[in-house]
Nucleic acid binder design. Structure first.
Lengths: 127, 127
DNA sequence: CGGAATCCTTGACGATACTG
DNA sequence: CAGTATCGTCAAGGATTCCG
């Protein structure tokens, strides 16, 4: 899609399904993390700070359903479940990391813009 | 943590502030749309299907605060307010469109994976 | 260990009405 | 036209508990 092109509704609808995944706070974390290699459930839980076990389960299910993540159960005692990126997941990692890199590079500018905005807003409120 | 092990907690925290913007369903739509040129409030509302007036206002405020979007008020009657991407916004557009392009290209694979998963799930439930 | 089930709180969002 | 304000709903998500 060229930038000059109009905002195609149909395309955006379809793209949204994938993008909404990025919207899920934890999905991005997990995909990034699994980009570094196969992990077990508890490893992910420890690595992704602040995630509840429920949300982790739900998120992993969603990623598995969408074909980004594979889930392998070893029927041992105690149970052992490994999560890894699929080919699709590894491909998704590319634009995702591009976005992440941009975010890191430009985070300071966003913070600065926010501070400037808040000062302006405070000034107008006082006037 | 080494660069090869991409998931640096501090970095992810900072990156999240920007990525969480992508999480906002409407923000992406709007940034993409404004990528095609300056728009008025009602133009955006009409173009972005399903957005309520309130959410549009809130989202635009957020984008303005973060420095992605500029807001220009013409004190005429009736009022006229124009929204456009800032330099920062246009730069964000790059990784965002990369993600959007990926989403469009691979949407079919996700749908397929989802269908396969659902069939598997149904089968297990029946067994 | 991994996960399912339950309850419960919060805040995100939509609908509506009003203002400049 | 471009908002602001208020209210009600509703589901996402956290805490907890039980199971294989």
């Amino acid at each position: 899609m060229k930038p000059s092109e109009a905002h195609d509704p149909g395309a955006c609808g379809r793209a949204n399904e994938v993008i909404s995944l990025v919207g899920d706070k934890w999905s991005v974390h997990i995909v990034m993390l699994l980009g570094t290699g196969t992990k077990r459930f508890m490893e992910i839980k420890r690595a992704v700070d602040g995630v509840s076990q429920k949300m982790l389960t739900v998120t992993l299910r969603g990623l598995e359903r969408d074909g980004y993540v594979s889930r392998t159960v070893y029927p041992t005692v105690p149970p052992k479940v490994e999560y890894a990126l699929t080919d699709l997941g590894r491909e998704l990692l590319v634009p995702l990391q591009a976005l992440g890199a941009w975010a890191l590079e430009n985070h300071a500018r966003v913070v600065k813009a926010r501070a400037a905005y808040d000062i302006r807003a405070a000034g107008e409120a006082a006037e």
